[in-house]
Amino acid sequence: MKLASKDLLDIESLSPGEIELILDTATSFKDVSERTIKKVPTLRGRTVINLFFEPSTRTRVSFELAGKRLSADTINVSASGSSVSKGETLLDTVRNLQAMSPDVIVMRHGSSGAPHAVAKRVDAAVVNAGDGMHEHPTQGLLDAYTIREAKKRLSGLKVVIVGDLLHSRVFRSNLRLLTKMGAHVIITGPPTLIPPHVAKLGAEVAPTMDDAIANADVVMMLRVQKERMEGAFFPSVREYFRLYALTVARVERAKPDAIIMHPGPLNRGLEIDSSVADGPYSLILDQVTNGVAVRMAVLYLLTGGHGGLGQDKPPEGARA
């Protein structure tokens, strides 16, 4: 089985079957990262360009490791120090990269839909590594992988997503993925940071943090994106913490086996208390670990899903 599209631009265009395929494929790739020799020859001779128009540490490193562990040649291009700063248009930059025949372009851009504009005009597979406030599909997939690993299922879970929903591409990918897979998504945050008509996308809006978190299976905290905020969305860090931060007292309202997630980077003391972030229910670092496996699966599937894992065994997810 393959993915229907040449690109991975958003969760919106994935079917539940494709989501399962990616998660299952990631399971077999996670094993690679746990070996002493963390490398398989699967993408030998393939080229992956990481094209980042916005600063990123975690996602860029994760994609780079994913490519390298699959033996692809990975190249990182960041917007500063490139022709972009000389006034070249987005499409010219990408056309020039295309002329060097990469197999995959992993792209992060500050404008929603930018990878979609690029994907239409290049032969390479385009992977959206975050576009503006739209989607961050591999984050959604790695979050789903992490939840599934802990809870053995997605369907029927009560997932609470808290914070700056308005500016969050992580939220949009997670909302779409989780609702497609049958989870119940409850959101809360300051009304100034809740996007209009979000209920039409399948989210239930809870009036307060305490309402939202009651009996939750999963609590996903979002980073307050100070850099995307023009104007006053809430009065102070102090008040935000009081109303919406994840504290030990609030975690106790969730189910006893609830898990805590955060896409990072953390604003400790703003949206999450350190004792929760570093506490026993936190899977925040598991998310990062799983990110590499999920991105390996995505690169593998978009380049045709050929080649093995270096042990003459096809990835389990490639079945059927």
Binding site: E135, R172, P195, P196, L201
Partner: peptide, 12 residues
């Protein structure tokens, strides 16, 4: 600003 701006992640 409406459903589509939310779905597309565009400023409304």
């Amino acid at each position: 600003e409406g459903y589509w701006s939310t779905a597309l992640g565009l400023r409304g």
